[in-house]
Design a binder for these strands. Structure first.
Length: 328
DNA sequence: CTGATTTGACCGCG
DNA sequence: CGCGGTCAAATCAG
């Protein structure tokens, strides 16, 4: 069935998309510049900042809730190791998400005394069947789909956090050697908020979900002003109309939208950041972290611009190993 | 049957 | 040694 954006939303969406697309392109250019002359890089940074700033304005202007969420998050953002945090729209339902969290601290129901030394039953995989036929991952990715195929490979409770962290690796880790990984952890209950941290870039080509060539799908976005040349790595905007961000934004479609925040570190030391790991997966609000949110409190909502530039600067000037994050 | 999830066991690092 | 990240056997889902 076809789904369309509410007018109010689509207009802004249009603008946001344009801004983000531009920003992404500039980041790509910047990446290339970084290996070259620094001057041009500086100019790009400025442009990028402007682009994202505009985006923020648009978004904040139309969505007041956003600010709230953002501040809320900070309020109780855990002491994550990485960095900042972001937020997104509000959701309502819960569902398999609960199952997820429970699973983390589960294992109560009578356990036999295994654990001896050698012959005890490995209970891996012996989990109870889910009530809902949905899987955590399924629901999650559906809402927070970032355009890539992920495979969950672990879940763990993290110290000082109330919810377990979920580990995902690119589905093509083996068939294509893609190193991309990401962690998703719920950091807030009320309006459910999730933090998604990306590690590494996708080196895979998901023929099913990310066509290599971006067909101009009628969309007007991609004002191609700056030419398009985003390699494979998906193109969220053109590919998915119900992008997480937007959908959560207006909570249209999908009965409930979870908020989620994303952090996107570019670690992957052993390798250079080859082309974009662009903001794709995170498409929307961007607000760098670097400990800014990390600790707690302090407002960001209206400080976006500042924070952002601060981060950007730090990011590009200093270590490139740093995580920058986006709000979703 | 094949591919994805679940979840305790492992493991490396600090 | 504890913690966070990953592995992989057991299950689930289509």
């Amino acid at each position: 069935m076809e789904w369309t954006w509410p007018e109010s939303v689509s207009s802004n969406r249009q603008r946001v998309v344009e801004e983000l697309v531009q920003g992404r392109e500039m980041v790509n250019q910047l990446q290339r510049c970084l290996s070259g002359d620094v001057r041009s890089a500086e100019g790009l940074v400025t442009k990028i900042l402007g682009s994202f700033t505009n985006t923020l304005r648009i978004l904040n202007g139309s969505e007041e809730a956003k600010e709230e969420l953002i501040s809320q998050i900070q309020a109780n953002s855990p002491t994550s190791t990485v960095t900042a945090s972001g937020s997104a729209a509000a959701g309502t339902d819960s569902l398999s998400w609960d199952a997820l969290d429970d699973a983390g601290k589960s294992e109560d129901s009578n356990e036999e005394s295994y654990k001896s030394t050698e012959t005890f039953k490995d209970r891996r995989g012996s989990y109870k069947r889910r009530k809902t036929s949905h899987s955590w991952t399924k629901d999650t990715l559906d809402l927070v789909d970032d355009g890539h195929a992920w495979r969950k490979y672990g879940q763990k409770m993290i110290l000082n956090t109330r919810h377990p962290r979920n580990y995902f690796r690119c589905t093509h880790k083996f068939d294509q050697g893609c190193k991309a990984t990401k962690h998703v952890q719920r950091i807030k209950d009320e309006p459910q908020l999730f933090r998604t941290t990306y590690y590494g870039n996708h080196t895979c080509t998901d023929y099913l979900r990310a066509p290599e060539l971006i067909l101009d799908s009628s969309s007007s976005q991609d004002s191609s002003k700056n030419m398009i040349r985003f390699d494979n790595t998906n193109n969220d905007f053109t590919r998915k109309q119900e992008h997480p961000f937007f959908s959560s934004f207006t909570s249209i479609k999908k009965e409930s939208v979870k908020e989620e925040e994303m952090i996107t570190p570019i670690n992957d030391h052993d390798h250079v950041i080859h082309h974009n790991q662009q903001l794709s997966s995170c498409d929307y609000l961007m607000s760098p972290g670097l400990g800014v949110f990390e600790s707690s409190a302090s407002t960001i909502a209206y400080d976006h611009e500042d924070v952002f530039s601060r981060i950007m600067v730090g990011y590009f000037d200093d270590e490139v190993d740093f995580p920058y994050e986006f709000f979703l």
